[in-house]
């Protein structure tokens, strides 16, 4: 039990630190495409870790509940798939709008094809 409590706490803190580093990386990235790219760790790794930590914590307090674990599994799969599709749509919209791409982006195959 103490091992599971330690695991849940570690998962929660590491997931939260991933969110914090992504928030700082939004200042460090130089253009909008890099910022969309740097969002990945938060939604693909940080949020599933936090949801898993919450499920472990609730199971320790109230006993094993299969419905809770099914919901957690659906949440994790949906986070990974949905955030990926959302990033694709947003990146395509950014390219089609007049947002500037950083000058240091080299090679840039989009520029030569237009």
């Amino acid at each position: 039990m103490i091992v599971l409590e330690f695991l849940a706490g570690t998962l929660a803190i590491v997931g939260a630190l991933l969110f914090l580093s992504v928030a700082i990386a939004q200042f460090r990235a130089r253009d909008a495409l890099s910022r969309i790219n740097a969002l990945g760790p938060a939604t693909a790794l940080g949020a599933p870790m936090l949801v898993l930590a919450v499920a472990i914590g609730r199971s320790l307090e109230q006993g094993l509940d299969w419905m809770l674990w099914i919901k957690t599994a659906i949440t994790i799969v949906a986070l990974v798939v949905v955030s990926s599709v959302a990033s694709n749509v947003l990146a395509r919209a950014t390219c089609r709008s007049d947002a500037a791409v950083d000058e240091a982006t080299h090679p840039n195959d989009l520029r030569s094809s237009q």
Binding site: G9, I13, A16, F19, L20, V22, L50, A53, G57
Partner: peptide
């Protein structure tokens, strides 16, 4: 305690 710390870090983010 770990959940409170994680919540604070998320609020900061």
């Amino acid at each position: 305690l770990a959940f409170w710390v994680a919540g604070s870090i998320l609020a900061a983010a």
